[in-house]
């Protein structure tokens, strides 16, 4: 695997201005007889926030692992910023990933952990140092960054995990439950940072159970149920779908579409609004 040349400065150059941030066609993952993800189609434009909902075991984490090249799909293709997943060297340049459990080395301090990730991405030392300090300040972690990660609370780990996903200024950010377990202040900080990132044209693919987060942040929502995308649209669209006919909550819409029916047809009308 040859090395991808590191960027000279921290400016991100998308391969194609008009390319979709995330595009998936027929993405499928089977584990033996069990189909975890069933022919998933996605078309998410740049700068978009896509909320990915679904009950536990629906296939959200599997989808995310496929889209971040960590797992190979059984069928189907996908591109990130126009680059196919099979070209891992180029595509990982665009991806920042924060799994549900942030991957961290317990025996390092926060700063050392971030310095290590910068080293892995082969960023020049002074640029890395500045970037690290800037992000630490943005997430209120400057004072705690010199303590060992083993002493960190869940919220602090989440913040370090987010920072390390952002270090190389990815165009697309994949977040798996970024605010779960966080106290309201920490959650608010994270959400504010995410909103700022959106303003800077970062695309965010966000998987969560917390509907209020999705309601606040997402431009569109996809609901995954037993491997199938059963609903897709803006939060307003989905709320309107709730059968009582009045404007209802996202929770009701979610519960309806993920009820155990034999088949769920994806609504033709619920397309991703651009």
């Amino acid at each position: 695997m040859t090395r991808h040349p590191p960027p000279d400065e921290f400016t991100r150059e998308p391969d194609d201005e008009t390319a979709l941030a995330i595009e998936a066609r027929g993405l499928t993952k089977r584990f033996g007889d069990h189909t975890a993800v069933d022919h998933l189609d996605l078309a998410i434009p740049q700068g978009h926030v896509y909320g990915f909902l679904g009950p536990n075991g629906a296939g959200k984490t599997t989808t995310m692992r496929m889209l971040t090249t960590l797992m190979s799909p059984t069928e189907g293709t996908a591109t990130i910023m126009g680059t196919p997943l099979t070209d891992r060297e180029s595509v990982t340049h665009h991806i920042g990933y924060l799994p549900e459990e942030p991957p961290l080395y317990e025996e390092l301090t926060g700063r050392e952990q971030l310095s290590y990730v910068a080293f892995l991405h082969d960023t020049p030392d002074d640029a890395a140092a500045n970037r690290i300090e800037e992000l630490l300040a943005r997430l209120d972690m400057t004072d705690d960054a010199d303590r060992r990660i083993s002493t960190y609370s869940k919220g602090m780990r989440q913040k370090i995990g987010l920072i390390q996903a952002l270090l190389h200024e990815p165009a697309v950010l994949f977040l798996d439950e970024p605010t779960s377990g966080l106290d309201p202040r920490a959650a608010r900080t994270v959400l504010d940072v995410l909103a700022e990132l959106v303003d800077e044209e970062t695309t965010i693919f966000l998987s969560t159970h917390i509907l209020s987060v999705v309601d606040e942040l997402a431009d569109s929502i996809g609901v995954l149920h037993e491997g199938l995308l059963v609903a897709e649209g803006s939060p307003a669209d989905l709320k309107r779908r709730a059968e009582t006919g009045e404007e209802r909550t996202l929770e009701q819409a979610f519960l309806e579409v993920t009820a155990d029916h034999e088949e769920e047809e994806v609504e033709e009308s619920a397309e991703v609004t651009t």
Binding site: R3, H4, P6, T68, T69, L70, E89, T92, H93, I95, Y97, P99, E101, P102, P103, L104, Y105, V117, L120, H121, D122, Q164
Partner: peptide, 10 residues
């Protein structure tokens, strides 16, 4: 888990 970070890096 750091394997993920190392894997996704150049």
């Amino acid at each position: 888990d750091m394997r993920i970070v190392e894997f996704l890096s150049p």
